[in-house]
């Protein structure tokens, strides 16, 4: 009947399954990849050789640049569309709003192979839109080239929209209607309200969403693989190629590329956090 602290530690046993799974399939694999990135694939001791390869070979430099470019562009376009979408949803509650969020939720799972397939039908070499474009003489559609970096950016933007809008809609709840009313009574135009009050208040959420979008685009793999196989200079494709390629497995190089990708994500998080802190100084809430 007397309870003492000693048997409390028996309960730590219940943590074991969680720790085993986390260790085996999360912590150890990650640690190994990072560790192996410092070992040469030909065997030997600690080296920066893999990182030098990345820095010197055009293919990998291009992969990093392409990945950065498409991630930044698609995240930027995604956030702009999401801003107007979420604002519209915020200003107009009702039936349309419910349909809007329902559609967003549904297409938020629309990614990977199915998305690639839908775009192939739509804008591939003999795609529907391309055919329609040819018949109606719309050259932008008729000459659309899906299988290029620019062509694929449309797909990236597509999967960014539901994610970013769903992330931003709750943030707009923090923009109180009374602020707008107060601003108008004090003589501010709607433009002033958005520039001086609403956007600064929303900025931390916008930045956080931006970094999620960036990471999301940077890691996107299935869609691109379905369209281009291994023949494209993008980070995730090159990483997977190092481990699953027909030739030989280059765990060191692949590891180093993985580390580069994780560092890019981390840098983006740190950067957006730093900017966001400047906006929060004024007491604006998250």
């Amino acid at each position: 009947m007397i309870k003492k602290a000693s048997n409390k530690y028996l309960y730590l046993l219940a943590l074991v399954p969680f720790l085993v799974v986390a260790l085996l399939y999360e912590i150890l694999p990650l640690a190994t990849v990072i560790y192996k990135s410092f070992l040469p694939d030909t065997g030997g001791a600690f080296t920066l050789e893999n990182y030098q390869t990345i820095a010197s070979k055009l293919l990998y430099r291009k992969a990093i640049m392409n990945s950065l470019k498409i991630s930044l562009t698609s995240a930027f376009v995604g956030i702009v569309i999401a801003f107007f979408g979420a604002r519209a949803a915020h200003e107009r509650p009702g039936k349309m709003n419910r349909a809007f969020t329902a559609v967003l939720n549904m297409v938020s799972n629309f990614a990977g192979i199915p998305l690639a397939f839908a775009y192939m039908i739509l804008l591939g070499n003999t795609g529907l839109m391309v055919n329609i474009g040819k018949e109606l003489g719309i050259s932008a559609l008729a000459n659309y080239e899906l299988y290029t970096m620019n062509g694929m950016s449309l797909i990236y933007i597509y999967f960014q929209i539901p994610l970013s809008t769903l992330l931003l809609i709750p943030a707009f709840d923090g923009v109180h209607k009374q602020w707008k009313e107060a601003c108008t009574l004090l003589g501010g135009t709607p433009g002033v309200f958005w520039r001086k009050i609403a956007i600064p208040v929303l900025m931390p959420s916008i930045l956080a969403t931006f970094s999620v979008l960036f990471a999301n685009a940077l890691a996107a793999y299935a869609t691109i693989y379905a369209l281009m196989m291994d023949n494209v200079a993008l980070l995730p494709v090159q990483i997977a190629g190092c481990f699953t390629g027909e030739v030989r497995i280059r765990a060191g190089l692949g590891g180093a590329l993985s580390v580069v990708m994780m560092v890019l994500m981390l840098l983006m998080i740190l950067l957006t956090n730093a900017i966001s802190r400047r906006f929060q100084k004024g007491g604006a809430r998250r």
Binding site: T32, N216, I239, F243, S258, M261, M265
Partner: peptide, 17 residues
């Protein structure tokens, strides 16, 4: 952590280990 390490990195790191 899995939020940030997405599919590709996770799969290749488990595989290579």
């Amino acid at each position: 952590i899995p939020y940030t390490i997405q599919g590709v990195i996770l799969s290749v790191s488990i595989l290579s280990l």
